[in-house]
Design a protein around this nucleic acid. Structure first.
Length: 260
DNA sequence: CCCTATGTTCCCAA
DNA sequence: CTTGGGAACATAGG
């Protein structure tokens, strides 16, 4: 579920709680996460976000990497009496414990030494989304603009909700070929990207169904969605009906008259 | 039973 | 090589 704003929210909150703290122990419940063992006694030197992934730097030259994929959640508990449903792993600290919950079990938690491999052209579209740069990267690509925005090798962090919202804000049809956008349209996309993602971070993310922050609270950006999950509702600009169609297997919400 | 789901990766085909 | 489609992963909810 989590995209850039949700992961940024967790990153901020984790820093408040576990920075410089020592891992007292780890309880791996889902054997898929076995690679995360052997972190007992390590201190958390830093917590950083890379796209939709979190990287916790340890004091032994390793990193604890976390990707929540579709349904992953993190929860900080100071009351240990209850183990949430679908808990896959718990990490104990002196003052509380970090619980990794993941019903669909797509999430990844692993401790490794390696650095991240692939180069990402735009590492943070909530901060440095230059229209010129993004246009350069798009080059001659014929892939739909929405698929391009969601391609994690190009731009790190944009997923289905925010791709729909950004393209609506920029009045661009999600099916347009990336190479076909004008300079002016790229400017609109880049500005919408920074503005929407930053606003969503302030709102601590979008809670459509089960997203919760580190302390179990819902986000607030769902109240500001213009098209995502607004199927059939009136477009805020032209009052026509928002439509939902499928693009590369993903539900895509847009206004057919405002997005060209 | 059907369809849907905020993600990524892999296989296959054009 | 590029691109797109579909399936897979695994589970819950409408």
């Amino acid at each position: 579920m989590p995209e850039l704003p949700e992961v940024e929210t967790l990153c901020d909150q984790l820093k408040q709680v576990i920075l410089d703290m020592e891992i007292q122990g780890i309880d791996i419940i889902d054997p898929k996460l076995e690679m995360a063992n052997d972190v007992k006694g390590r201190k958390i030197l830093a917590v950083i976000r890379r796209g939709k992934a979190l990287e916790m730097q340890l004091d032994n030259d390793k990193n604890l990497l976390l990707h929540l994929r579709m349904t992953g959640r993190l929860l900080w508990q100071t009351d240990y009496r209850e183990m949430p449903a679908h808990t896959r792993c718990t990490i104990d600290f002196p003052h509380g414990r970090l619980v990794f919950i993941d019903p669909r079990r797509f999430g990844i938690l692993t401790a490794i030494q390696d650095r991240d491999t692939g180069r990402v052209f735009i590492e943070d579209p909530s901060r440095n989304c230059s229209a010129k740069r993004i246009m350069e990267i798009a080059g001659n690509r014929k892939t739909p603009i929405k698929s391009f925005l969601m391609d994690q090798r190009m731009i790190a962090g944009i997923g289905n909700i925010y791709a729909c919202e950004i393209l609506y804000a920029a009045s661009v049809d999600p099916w347009r070929k990336a190479c076909s956008l004008s300079q002016k349209e790229w400017k609109g996309v880049a500005e919408a990207s920074e503005r929407i993602l930053r606003r969503a971070i302030v709102c601590r993310g979008t809670t459509i169904s089960d997203w919760r922050d580190l302390f179990g609270r819902k986000g607030e950006y769902q109240h500001e969605l213009r098209v995502y999950a607004q199927n059939g509702n009136p477009c805020p600009k032209c009052h026509g009906a928002i439509q939902r169609m499928r693009l590369s297997g993903r539900g895509t919400y847009f206004c057919p008259s405002c997005q060209k």
